[in-house]
Structures are given as C-alpha cells and as structure tokens.
Computed example of a mutant assay.
Amino acid sequence: MSADDATTPTPAPLAFSGQRLDWRDLPRGVRTRIQELAGAQVTAEMSATTGFSPGFAAVLELADGRGVFVKAVSPEQNPQSPELARAEVRAAQAIPAQVPAPRLLWHDDDGDWVLLGFEVATGRPPLLPWRPAELRRVLEAMAVLSEATPLPGHRLPATDEHFAADFRGWHTLAEGPGSALDRTADWAEGTGEWLRAHLDTLCTWSEDATAALVGDRLVHGDLRADNVMIDVEHVALIDWPHASVGAAWADLAFMVPSIAMQGGGRPQEIFWAQPMSAGLEPERLRAAVAGLAGYFTHGALQPPPPGIPNLRRFQQAQAEQALLWLRDLG
C-alpha cells in the first residue's frame, strides 16, 4: 500500500498524550513570572492536546492581543522533564531560519521550574489516520529540514552519541531474563515471535546503528504526528529536546514507523520515495532501523514513567512497525 492509498484506519493506537497541568495548577510565583516574561497578563489558555511531556503546555492569550505558546515543567511532574526543557532551549538556539519551526521568544530557569515561550504554531496536528495530502506536506517540510545544518556555535550533540545508549536495546534484552521477551507473544502480525527467533541477528545489525547516523545535518530526533502542526499554508515541526547533528535521512527513518502505525502506508515504500533517502546504502538503513526497533521494544517492556502512562503502548505500536520494516530490509 502506498502513502496515497492509505485512507483506512489501522488497528494500532493512533494517538496518546501525557498528563498536562492547567494554568491554575501552576504555583502563583510561576504564573507571575510567565506574565513578566510575556509582557502582559494572561487572559485565556488553550492546552496542548498531544505530546507526551508532562507539565504545562498551552497557548496563552495575552491582554494586549498577542499569543504565546508556553511550556513550564519541574521535577515534580517527571524527573527528566526539566533537562529536556533545557535541551529544547539549546536546540532552539541552533535552528536556522529555513527550518519550519516556531522561534523561542524567551526562557527562564530557576533551578526548579523551567519556562519556555515560543511563537504560536498555527493550525492543528495532522488528522489521523494520515490523509495523503497532509502526509505529503509534512514529508516536504522534513525534506527542507534534511538540508539544514545547525547555526554556528550550537551546543547540540552528535546523533550517534545522543542515541548510543538507547540503541543498545537488543543487547540489553538479550542479556536480561527471557521472560521479558515472552511478553511480546501477542504483538501484531507475529512480530514478537519473529524478534525472539532473530534476536542474535537483531543484535548484530544494531551494532552499526549509531555509526550509520553520522552526518552534519540538523536532526529533530523525535518527529511524529503529535510533534507537527499544520494549517492551510504552513507546516511547523515542534518539540525539539532530542535535537542533534547527524544523517540527513535520520528523521525520516525515525518517523516512518509511527506513520505506518497511524495509517500512512508501509515504511519501506514511504522511505525510499523521499529525496533524503537517495544514495543511501540499504545496509546502513537496516542498522539504524534495527537500533530504533530495539529502542522501542526495550522501552515498551518497561514500567510506565511518572506522568506518562500511555507511552509504553505507543512504543509497542512503533516497535511492531519497525520490526515489520526490518523483515523487508532483511
């Protein structure tokens, strides 16, 4: 099935989100500081409805008629959230103008609460299951991103270094108790059975995963439908805490399992139809996808992290699609 033919729903889960705070849930001092940074009183809020990060994420309407998209997180919601917010500040300072991403207007960090204020990305997340026209527009925006390099003086990690630990999922599972992998028995289309039968091969393929990702392009690192906003004229790529510098095709490879999960078509057909895949050696792609599948599989088998109860089901659905893709690549 091609991307243009993908109009029927997939049985996989289509979208999840984390647990959000409302404006009234924020401490008074945090609300006051946001209004100081924004330069006006807040008169209304519209909470974000997608994404996994816990904490506060909303478009705030200001008394002077402006709007600002604000994120506010502290360790109380999730211990990792403040560091991710700080990473997003570093990413925002590295994104060149041609990349379709909201600009960071201001930020603040008191050691507990991290606050970020962005331009408002107009529109909505893509409709799910994916509509072919919207998927084409998002892939076109990703093609623009694939040609971008970070601004001089950036502080982003290399993609291979950023994912080095994450992409050892198969080795971690192989070294652990077999009972963990037994929980994949009911995974879609026999993927659990296939991975257990090919665990040694998956470990071997994934050994080259991070080396395959080396490059000099700006990599978002976490693109999915819930990290995209779309309207009649624009596509915006949002939520950049995992940004790094690596291969031009990395974001496409990372995203297509979620596209397949959400009714957009088969990863193999989507990937090779895009300009950023031109000239890529299939073995290099296979290594990266093996690392990605190991990351999703290992993650899906862990307890849910604080404040993000739906994450593991979402990772399982992407793991299943990545494994199906590996069957084609193998």
Rank of each mutant, 00 (worst) to 15 (best):
I308C: 15
Q77K: 12
G29A: 13
H162G: 00
W130E: 00
S277M: 02
G291T: 11
S179N: 09
G246Y: 01
F118S: 01
L151M: 12
T49W: 10
Y295L: 14
H298W: 14
D251L: 00
Q98W: 02
V120P: 07
E140W: 09
V214E: 11
D160T: 05
D200H: 12
R33N: 05
A6F: 03
T122F: 00
G123M: 12
H107T: 04
A180Q: 12
E281L: 08
A293V: 08
A143R: 14
E175K: 13
F69H: 13
A57T: 07
A63Q: 15
E61H: 15
T50F: 13
T43K: 13
I230K: 10
L213M: 14
T8S: 12
E161H: 07
H242G: 07
L311H: 13
P54Q: 11
L105N: 05
R136G: 09
G169K: 10
D112T: 14
I238Y: 08
P282W: 10
W106G: 00
D208Y: 07
D328E: 13
R33W: 02
A91K: 05
G51Q: 09
D109T: 00
P304A: 15
A133P: 00
G330W: 13
Q315V: 08
P303R: 14
D251R: 01
P241W: 05
R183F: 06
D216P: 02
D208E: 14
L14R: 09
G51S: 10
P79R: 04
L199A: 01
C203E: 08
W325N: 03
V68Y: 05
L62M: 14
H298R: 13
Q93Y: 07
R286H: 08
Q315K: 14
V70G: 03
A57P: 02
M229E: 01
L156H: 09
A180M: 12
L128D: 02
L139F: 15
T122L: 03
A253R: 05
E175G: 14
R224K: 15
I230V: 14
P309M: 13
R286F: 07
F69N: 09
R312P: 10
L135E: 05
I238Q: 06
M229L: 06
A92M: 10
T8N: 08
P152K: 03
L127Q: 15
P75H: 08
R183C: 08
L202Y: 08
Q302S: 09
E320H: 12
L218P: 04
F271T: 11
L156A: 10
V232Y: 02
L326W: 04
R284D: 04
I34R: 07
T43F: 02
T122D: 00
D226K: 03
L21N: 10
G176D: 15
H171S: 11
D328I: 04
P100V: 05
P132D: 02
D226Q: 09
L156S: 11
D328L: 06
W113N: 03
R24E: 08
F167I: 00
I259C: 07
G221L: 00
M46L: 14
P132M: 01
L323I: 15
F118D: 05
I95F: 01
Q19N: 06
V289W: 09
A121P: 03
G221Q: 08
D231Q: 04
P79G: 02
P305W: 03
P305L: 07
A58W: 09
Q19T: 15
P9L: 02
P9R: 06
D160C: 05
P82Y: 03
P152F: 01
S17H: 15
H242F: 14
A48R: 11
S146D: 06
P9K: 06
A278Y: 02
